[in-house]
Simulated assay, not measured.
Amino acid sequence: MKNLKYWIMLILASLFWAGNYIVGKAVVAQVTPFQLTFVRWLFSAVLLVLIAQVVERPKWREVFRSWPILLFLAFNGLIGYNMALYTALTYTTPVNASLVSALNPALMVAVSSVVLRESLSRLQKLGIVFSLSGVLLILTQGSLARLAALDFNRGDLLMLIAISVWTVYSIVGKRLKDIRPITASAAAAVLATVAMLPGMLLQAGTPIVLNTAGLLSVAYIVVFPSVGSLMFWNLSVREIGAATAGVTLNLIPVFTSFITVLMGEAITLTQIVGGLMVFAGVYTTSGLLEGQLRKGREKGREAV
């Protein structure tokens, strides 16, 4: 149970990211994906630097000596992923985007097993398959014909690029062991903002105009998916590994479906069953079930 707090962080990170799919779709109807990405990291950088200063008290000169890898993470995970995501949402729905994102854990496991040589038990692999099956059940409403007929448009292809970028970000980010997680996130956010500034100057003729709903949506994106999810993800991946943590990304489409329901759509039995399957799969992959089974066997031997 020592990693329980990290699994809670990962679940919250997925919940916040699910909200990003919903509100991000609304915001890119008012501003460009580039503008939204810039504004997101501009304000997130300020918050992350303040939090890092209070919690971790870094020596910033020493931190920025690792600027090459931090800049890579900024371009890759902060700019690249979000540009691909928000551009995808201009062509596809949040549900379609979240369906494609469900492929991320499998991709992360495959890459991690090769690059980091992370290993998973058979039970954990079964958990990944089970949770992915739950995601597919929810998003296809139990119809294989609907899955076969799914039209992978430009937005869906961009989501494939997005999850590939996020996989690289997660694996490379784990190598920043000399820089504490919140500080690394803050430094990358600062570099992402600076890197995007010339592009924003070139778009000076296209002002950022948001209505009240748009401003509230941006505030949500800054505080929760950007600051909250990024800190929770980086903290957790360093402790339990990218491949194992990646299974919680299957929760994003589940939460996306539930948020959609809260916005007025009816919940179905398929969504309930699929959601339970995903949570069961995440629980299995976390190793908590395996630990309980091991304790049960040990107690059984003691009784004999």
Rank of each mutant, 00 (worst) to 15 (best):
Ser98Arg: 08
Ala102Asp: 08
Gln141Cys: 11
Arg180His: 13
Val63Leu: 00
Leu160Asn: 08
Val100His: 01
Tyr81Asp: 05
Asn76Asp: 07
Ala184Val: 09
Leu132Ala: 15
Leu123Asp: 08
Leu99Asn: 02
Ser170Ile: 11
Ile163His: 04
Arg146Gly: 12
Val168Gln: 12
Ser133Ile: 02
Leu89Trp: 05
Met108Thr: 15
Val109Glu: 00
Ser101Gln: 13
Gly134Cys: 09
Ala110Pro: 10
Ser119Tyr: 06
Leu103Glu: 01
Arg175Cys: 05
Trp60Glu: 01
Gly155Asn: 05
Asn153Thr: 11
Thr93Arg: 02
Ala106Val: 15
Leu120Tyr: 07
Trp60Gln: 04
Leu123Gln: 11
Asn82Met: 03
Asn82Gly: 13
Ala97Glu: 04
Ala184Leu: 03
Gly173Tyr: 00
Val135Trp: 00
Gly127Ala: 02
Val168Leu: 05
Pro58Gln: 06
Lys125His: 12
Ser98Met: 03
Val129Asp: 09
Val63Gly: 00
Ala149Asn: 15
Pro94Gln: 08
Ala88Val: 11
Leu144Trp: 08
Trp60Gly: 04
Lys174Ala: 12
Gln141Gly: 15
Ser101Pro: 08
Ser170Leu: 10
Asn153Pro: 05
Leu89Phe: 03
Val109Phe: 03
Leu123Ile: 10
Ala102Met: 03
Leu89Thr: 12
Leu137Val: 11
Ala88Leu: 05
Ala84Ile: 02
